[in-house]
């Protein structure tokens, strides 16, 4: 019984942390001044937020342990690995495309104006 409460506490902490990172990523996307700044905010925040929320889902699924639940957890783990690889590289590709299309990064002179 007490174990379930501990698991629940960890689930709540993980999901709240994930929501916090997703929230900061969205704020960064809206508030940062520059193309590259916006990209790095979403690239990092979205990845970490999604991974933390999915980890919380895995822990929640382990409440009653059976083979079916374990397989579901394994599938979610694969999704985590996929996001962990694909999301930063997609951000990198967009940044590279922006550089090749001559999008100028923000400089100190732009801020002083």
């Amino acid at each position: 019984m007490i174990v379930e409460y501990i698991i629940d506490a960890f689930v709540i902490i993980l999901v709240l942390l994930g929501l916090f990172f997703l929230f900061t990523a969205t704020v960064g996307l809206l508030r940062f001044p520059d193309f590259y700044c916006k990209l790095q905010a979403t690239g990092k925040g979205d990845t970490l937020g999604a991974i933390l929320i999915l980890l919380g889902v895995i822990l929640y699924n382990l409440h009653d342990f059976s083979l079916n639940n374990f397989l579901v957890c394994l599938k979610i783990l694969f999704i985590i690995i996929f996001i962990f690889h694909a999301n930063p590289v997609a951000t990198h590709a967009i940044t590279k495309a922006g550089l090749d299309a001559d999008v100028k990064p923000l400089t100190k002179e732009d801020i002083r104006k």
């Binding site: 996929f82 690889h85 590289v89 990198h92 590709a93 590279k96 495309a97 090749d100």
Partner: peptide
């Protein structure tokens, strides 16, 4: 469109495509 050859993208695609 210019050709974009990038080590990161190619390496990750090489791993990802069989899984996809």
């Amino acid at each position: 469109i210019r050709l974009i050859e990038d080590l990161h993208i190619q390496f990750v695609c090489r791993i990802m495509v069989p899984l996809i």
